[in-house]
């Protein structure tokens, strides 16, 4: 597989997952913040932006400015629009590798964004978020049903897994967990699409510790951090051509993922909650470092080189 194409696929995975996660966040959190008058709206919005790693700059932070930053603005690198545009651009550069259906799905999604933004201006951001969630779900389905399970699929899936860890950590960093109110915790669960499952598993016992445990290490929930860590580990193992684990894991990226997974599995749920801030920071560091290691190992530098001419007598 061409390094450049592998890198594109990896980023398609990341952008798709990012768009989906952001659409959930905007949908659930913004609605909640808007619906709860009396709470310190601006502070909450600022916390949300901080969790997403967005600097709001100077000036007031309002629900509409947050929607612009996280959803609509092409120029805001943190926006859903930017993520889907980047996904489509990467797909455009890898079209001969993607299935026609997958390419078409990404292309159509991108073409439809402008129209949904206009609709959202009238009907509210939910229209836009709904569209994005529906399209990403469809695209993910096509990945699952049309992509050959080769290294290309593995790089794409790796992108999805790492992004999912990253977004989960960011969601856990919002004060929702600390506040502990049931409605807020439910919103948090909804924003990762895990509310119904949680209710079944914990019989409705919504406590910060339960929520943290569920989001961090439920072995069966595909949206838990531990699940994605295990997935990323397995994918890296399959990607490693000269694999030999007899004397331990040589691949630094895989070792780091495994250590983190064990750290989550063997903590008590109370410890999980207590250590949360440092865990979140470690998780964010971990995804970023893993991404760098995968990049330098598999993607090489496919840079455009600017050559200079030289002449000597």
């Amino acid at each position: 597989m061409l390094s450049r194409i592998a890198e594109s696929l990896y980023w398609i995975g990341r952008y798709l997952e990012r768009a989906d996660a952001k659409a959930r966040v905007v949908d659930v959190h913004l609605t909640r913040i808007q619906d709860e008058p009396g709470t310190d709206q601006e502070r909450q919005l600022r916390t949300l932006l901080a969790a997403m790693g967005v600097d709001p700059g100077d000036g007031a932070v309002t629900p509409s400015s947050v929607v612009a930053l996280l959803a609509f603005d092409q120029d805001s690198p943190a926006s859903i629009t930017a993520a889907l545009t980047a996904a489509r651009e990467n797909a455009r550069g890898a079209r001969e590798i993607l299935s026609s259906e997958l390419w078409e799905a990404l292309n159509v999604t991108w073409h439809g964004l402008a129209e949904r933004r206009m609709a959202a201006a009238v009907l509210g951001p939910q229209v836009f978020c709904y569209y994005v969630r529906e399209r990403t779900a469809m695209t993910t389905g096509l990945i699952s049903t049309t992509m050959v399970r080769d290294d290309g699929w593995r790089f794409l899936s790796l992108g999805v897994a790492l992004e999912r860890i990253d977004m989960a950590a960011r969601m856990l960093s919002t004060p929702a967990l600390a506040e502990g109110r049931a409605s807020v915790l439910a919103g948090l669960l909804r924003s990762v699409g895990g509310h119904d499952t949680f209710v079944r598993v914990y019989q409705g016992a919504v406590s910060p510790a339960n929520v943290a445990e569920f989001l961090l290490r439920d072995q069966l929930s595909p949206r838990s951090v531990a699940f994605s860590l295990a997935a990323a580990e397995a994918l890296l193992r399959e990607l490693d051509p000269g694999l030999d684990d007899r004397l331990g894991v040589a691949d630094g990226a895989r070792r780091a993922l495994g250590r983190m997974r064990l750290a989550l599995e063997f903590r008590s749920s109370a410890e999980l909650l207590d250590d949360l801030p440092s865990l979140i920071e470690s998780l964010l560091r971990l995804t970023s470092r893993t991404s760098d290691e995968v990049t330098s190992r598999y993607f090489g530098k496919s840079l455009h080189v600017r050559w200079a001419e030289e002449v000597a007598p």
Binding site: L2, R4, I5, R95, E96, S100, S302, L303, V305
Partner: peptide, 15 residues
């Protein structure tokens, strides 16, 4: 289209 239908890689100069 040609690369896909021939089943070969589509490369850029930097590859």
């Amino acid at each position: 289209l040609l690369a896909r239908q021939m089943g070969v890689q589509l490369v850029e100069g930097r590859d």
